[in-house]
Simulated assay, not measured.
Amino acid sequence: DIQKIVAEVAKELEEEKIPYAIPEQGIMIETPAAVMMSEELAEHVDFFSIGTNDLTQYTLAIDRQNNRLDRFYNPHHEAVLRMIQMTVDGAHKHGKWVGICGELGADTTLTTRFVQMGIDELSVAPSMVLNVRSKICEME
Rank of each mutant, 00 (worst) to 15 (best):
D1G: 15
I2F: 13
I5R: 15
I5Q: 13
V6G: 07
A7N: 15
A7Y: 11
E8W: 13
E8V: 13
V9T: 15
A10Y: 04
K11N: 13
K11I: 05
E12F: 11
L13M: 05
L13N: 00
E15Y: 00
E16I: 08
K17L: 07
P19I: 01
P19A: 06
A21S: 13
I22Q: 11
I22W: 02
I22E: 09
P23A: 00
E24M: 06
I27R: 03
M28E: 08
M28L: 15
I29Y: 01
I29H: 01
E30V: 07
E30T: 10
A34N: 03
A34V: 02
A34Y: 00
A34D: 04
A34S: 12
M36F: 10
M36N: 12
E39M: 11
L41P: 08
L41C: 09
A42Q: 10
E43K: 15
E43W: 04
H44M: 09
D46K: 01
S49Q: 02
S49R: 04
T52H: 01
D54T: 08
L55A: 03
Y58C: 04
Y58E: 10
L60M: 05
A61N: 15
I62Q: 02
D63R: 06
N66A: 13
R68K: 10
R68A: 09
F72W: 11
F72V: 05
P75E: 02
H76Q: 05
H76I: 00
H77Y: 04
H77K: 02
A79P: 10
V80W: 02
L81D: 13
R82L: 06
I84N: 03
I84E: 00
I84L: 10
Q85S: 12
M86N: 12
M86F: 11
M86G: 03
T87W: 01
V88S: 09
D89S: 09
G90I: 01
A91Y: 03
A91F: 07
H92F: 05
K93W: 09
G95I: 02
K96I: 06
W97S: 14
V98P: 06
C101Y: 09
C101A: 11
G102F: 03
G102P: 07
E103K: 05
L104R: 12
G105E: 06
G105K: 08
G105I: 05
A106Q: 07
T108W: 01
T111Q: 00
T112F: 09
R113T: 12
V115Y: 07
V115R: 12
V115W: 05
M117W: 10
D120E: 09
S123W: 09
V124A: 02
A125D: 14
P126R: 07
P126N: 10
M128R: 15
M128N: 12
V129W: 05
N131W: 08
V132I: 01
R133D: 04
S134L: 12
K135L: 04
C137E: 14
E138R: 14
M139T: 11
